[in-house]
């Protein structure tokens, strides 16, 4: 549905370099990356709001490269809602319909259906200033869909919402996507949003695409140490010699002989125990606790293993057992299958 080929542009110090992307019809695609990586620039380029120097954009089989935004049939939803403050909820929703050949009667009926589906019917006559954050974002979504767009572009649609509203809107988005067979390109840096909504995703960094693929593949099999770190694989070990990852002080573990580059491991896949009796096929490394911290409801420890620091998620049982004071000796265990190879040359600055 969206095909971006070789998109390049320069905006001051920032440059998009040869960005290519393919979003299939009916697909929910997540474009992820850290702040300043160029996610929104890609989105606004697809919407036609930014002038680029090179590349082509096709939407629904049509070359829209030279078309102005209003002729691309894409609807854009920003993080800050961008509702028209001088119009009511209903007026906001029907705003664009006249430009898409939708008759007023049909437009009104469809707008009311959308508002009803998003639980906004009772708010039709209100102005945006009298809505909550979640309601505003629902109205923005209804407004985007009311034009029957080929593609919906979402710029971090959930990031400004309270957790409760965020869950509600995430469910609403998922339902709408399935029921209306929408093609959605969503920019996000939130893993939960990406994992729960998208089937495929891309990671962008400094204006360059790092990886494009199935969402599970990106989170499980990152192709660069940057993507590995970005998706939360905090443990990256260099393959020091064929078949071996040495961590220093005589500590290390075996890897396949053919492995070159680095091995990445999610903190959730590392088991922390005071007892080295782990199953025979597990890799078991001696370590000393450096710190224990919590992020929300999850607990993590950083343990020094050789010269490396390994981050591991702590489960309730491990926390209850105690013995995790700084300096305490522990064993870190993981299965070889959880190690993911990040090949050499996949990350220039790695």
């Amino acid at each position: 549905m969206i095909r971006v080929s070789g998109l390049s542009l320069r905006l001051g110090d920032f440059a998009l370099q040869d960005v290519s992307l393919h979003v299939r019809p009916g697909e929910f695609f997540a474009l992820m990356g850290p702040t300043g990586s160029g996610k929104t620039v890609v989105l606004e380029s697809i919407a036609g709001l930014i002038q680029w120097q090179r590349g082509e954009i096709h939407i629904a089989g049509r070359d829209v490269t030279a078309l102005p935004p209003e002729r691309r049939r894409v609807s854009l939803v920003y993080q800050d809602h961008a509702l028209f403050p001088h119009l009511t909820v209903l007026e906001n929703v029907i705003f664009g319909q006249r430009y898409h050949g939708i008759s007023p009667a049909d437009g009104l009926r469809e707008a009311n259906e959308l508002l009803d589906r998003l639980g906004l019917s009772r708010l039709c006559g209100r102005t945006p200033e009298n809505l909550s954050g979640g309601e505003k974002q629902r109205v923005a979504l209804a407004r985007a869909l009311a034009c029957r767009p080929n593609v919906v572009l979402l710029d971090e649609p959930l990031s400004s919402l309270d957790p409760q509203f965020r869950d509600d809107l995430r469910s609403a988005l998922k339902t709408l996507h399935m029921q209306m067979n929408l093609t959605v390109l969503m920019v996000t840096h939130d893993f939960v949003d990406a994992l729960s909504l998208a089937s495929r995703a891309a990671v962008i960094r400094g204006g360059r695409m790092e990886q494009v693929g199935q969402i599970d593949e990106i989170f499980r099999q990152p192709r660069s140490t940057f993507v590995a770190a970005f998706v939360g694989m905090k443990n990256v070990f260099r393959v020091t010699s064929p078949g071996l990852c040495e961590l220093g002080n005589g500590v290390g573990f075996a890897v396949p002989d053919a492995a070159h580059g680095a091995m990445a491991l999610r903190p959730e896949d590392v088991f922390v125990t005071r007892n080295p009796d782990l199953p025979g096929n597990w890799i078991c490394l001696p370590a000393k606790i450096r710190s224990v911290r919590h992020e929300g409801f999850s607990w993590f420890t950083e343990a020094v293993c050789g010269h490396a620091v390994i981050t591991a998620a702590l489960d309730r049982q491990c926390l209850m057992a105690g013995g995790l004071e700084p300096g305490s000796p522990v064993w870190l265990g993981f299965t070889p299958e959880r190690l993911h190879l990040v090949p050499d040359g996949s990350d220039e600055t790695g």
């Binding site: 919407a47 102005p68 209003e70 609807s75 920003y78 800050d80 961008a82 028209f84 034009c147």
Partner: peptide
């Protein structure tokens, strides 16, 4: 906010309609 104009354009309103309506 420029974003209001951007959204208006993406919803199909041309530069003139965006100027006069938003």
């Amino acid at each position: 906010p420029v974003r209001l104009e951007n959204v208006s354009r993406s919803l199909g309103a041309g530069p003139s309609a965006t100027f006069f309506r938003i």
